[in-house]
Structure formats: C-alpha cells, structure tokens
Simulated assay, not measured.
Amino acid sequence: MTTRPWVVDDDLWALIEPLRPPWPTRSPGPRPVDDRLCLQDILYVLHQDVAWQLLPLELGVGSGLTCWRRLDR
C-alpha cells in the first residue's frame, strides 16, 4: 500500500473525531477500518463523482461498500 497525504489533516480530524458515533464494543465481523481513512475515501468518492463500486483498491480501505456502510452508519 502506498502512503498518501491526508486530505483530512490533523486539525480538521481533531474537530471531526468527537462527533463520530462510538463503535460498538462487541461488534460482529472483522475489525473496523480506521474512521479517518474511511472518511478520506468517502470524500474521494464524493469529489471524484465515482460509484462506490469503482473506489480504487489502492486507496487502502478495501472496498467502496465498506465506506458506503460507514457513511450510512
């Protein structure tokens, strides 16, 4: 995986992080993807106007469905 600059810088993340809902402690399934990384990819999809299914795997989350579910949550 290649590193990429944060679109959501540390100052902006400090404002956003307290607003996100807490993750359930006993959530079924695999460990959740980092919220900050997921937000970056949500912003990518919205900015590039691409379908969730076309989110490039190189961005690091794994799938557009993961980001879509996180946005829905």
Rank of each mutant, 00 (worst) to 15 (best):
T25H: 09
V61W: 00
D11W: 05
D41H: 06
D34S: 09
P21G: 02
L71T: 07
R26C: 01
L19T: 15
D41V: 15
L37S: 08
V50C: 10
L59F: 02
R31D: 04
L12D: 07
W13P: 14
D11G: 10
S63Q: 03
Y44N: 02
W6F: 11
P5A: 10
L65K: 14
R20W: 11
D9P: 10
R26P: 02
L65I: 11
L57T: 15
P22H: 02
Q40D: 15
V7C: 09
M1Q: 10
D49M: 00
P5W: 00
R70W: 14
R69Y: 05
A14V: 06
R31V: 10
R31W: 00
Y44V: 08
D9Y: 07
P21W: 03
S27C: 01
L71G: 09
Q53I: 13
L59S: 02
D11P: 05
D34C: 09
D72Q: 14
P5E: 06
P30E: 09
L19N: 00
E58T: 12
D49V: 08
W52P: 06
C38N: 12
L19W: 03
C67Y: 05
Q48H: 14
I42M: 14
L59R: 15
W13H: 09
P24C: 08
L65T: 14
L46H: 07
L55G: 07
R69S: 07
G60K: 02
R20Q: 11
C67N: 08
G29C: 05
D11H: 14
D10H: 12
S63D: 04
D34M: 03
L71H: 03
L39N: 03
R4S: 10
V8I: 15
T3K: 07
T66R: 11
L46M: 13
R36Y: 05
H47N: 09
M1L: 12
P22R: 09
R70D: 07
L37K: 12
P56A: 01
G60T: 10
W13Q: 05
C67D: 07
T25A: 14
T2E: 12
D49L: 01
V7F: 11
D10F: 04
